[in-house]
């Protein structure tokens, strides 16, 4: 924590992350308009005093849309990391705790891992049709094997420690032992991983939305907004640039924070 406060880049990243989360949560209270309210008179208006970031092709204010877009984009990322991470962590814990399951479970994870997230995105969008749900599902599935590996790695180390033996000796049940003792000791490794993964998931999710496989226009979602702006790139570049820069900054902030957390845990890599 001290290191974090001393590093100006990391501190900026932390403040930014807190700010965007606050903005996303408080969206209806800090904005005055509706993200779908159009005002054709202001269509494609460049940034000015009325519209700080300009307006899109329907004259919708980009500040308002950006804040609502943040909401959906962050929720999408959060849900997929939480769901994929949760399932993956359970598999990883099971593999580390029940040795006979280890081989089979981890081979299955290897198979999942051998396909890139974009393929899950394409396949799932093909089956269920494009949409936010399809993107969340694809990202969650792509996240499971990664979480399983990280958790298994951390849990396998813990399994060799005395406290596991001690808990077993006093007759503690498996479920309680895993939940109360094994899992809490893997949480720090998982937290670092989840921070980095969140950034990647946002990037992947926005790419899927950009392709038209995720949130559909006119939904205020950052990737979909960038995709919508692509059509007006030559007359009103701000429509595409504003959401794209936001995605870049979010992912950058999470990557910087994740790297710092990881370096703190593994000082060997410290710059």
């Amino acid at each position: 924590m001290k290191r974090l406060l001393r590093d100006p880049v990391a501190l900026a990243a932390l403040i930014f992350v807190i700010a965007i989360i606050a903005a996303a949560v408080l969206a209806p209270w800090i904005t005055s308009g509706d993200p779908y309210d159009n005002d054709l008179g202001a269509a494609m208006a460049p940034p000015d005093a009325d519209h700080w970031f300009g307006a899109d092709d329907q004259g919708r204010d980009l500040v308002v849309r950006l804040i609502y877009g943040l909401r959906l984009t962050l929720a999408m990322g959060g849900i997929s990391v939480a769901v994929g991470g949760g399932i993956g962590a359970a598999i990883g814990l099971a593999a580390a705790f029940y040795k006979p399951l280890d081989g089979a479970l981890m081979r299955m994870m290897d198979v999942l891992l051998s396909f890139p997230a974009i393929l899950f995105g394409l396949a799932i969008a093909a089956i269920f049709g494009p949409g936010v749900t399809a993107v969340i599902l694809a990202l969650a599935v792509a996240t499971i094997p990664l979480a399983a590996r990280i958790t298994r790695g951390a849990a396998a180390v813990e399994m060799g420690r005395d406290y596991i033996e001690a808990a077993r000796a006093v007759g503690m049940k498996d479920g309680r032992l895993i939940w109360r003792h094994l899992l809490p000791n893997c949480v720090s490794a998982l937290a670092v991983w989840a921070t980095l993964r969140f950034g990647q998931v946002i990037l992947l999710g926005s790419a899927l939305s950009f392709l038209g496989l995720g949130a559909q226009p006119p939904t205020a979602e950052l990737g979909a907004m960038a995709s919508q702006g692509r059509g007006f790139l030559f007359f009103a570049p701000h429509i595409a640039v504003v959401p794209s820069v936001m995605i870049f900054l979010i992912v950058l902030a999470f990557n910087v924070l994740g790297d710092l957390l990881r370096d703190t845990l593994d000082p060997r890599l410290r710059a």
Partner: peptide
């Protein structure tokens, strides 16, 4: 390099096109 990992591909593409 961290910036490179974080930038959306479509943003780079659109900037180059523009």
């Amino acid at each position: 390099s961290v910036a490179g990992v974080s930038v959306p591909v479509f943003f780079v593409g659109m900037l180059l096109i523009w």
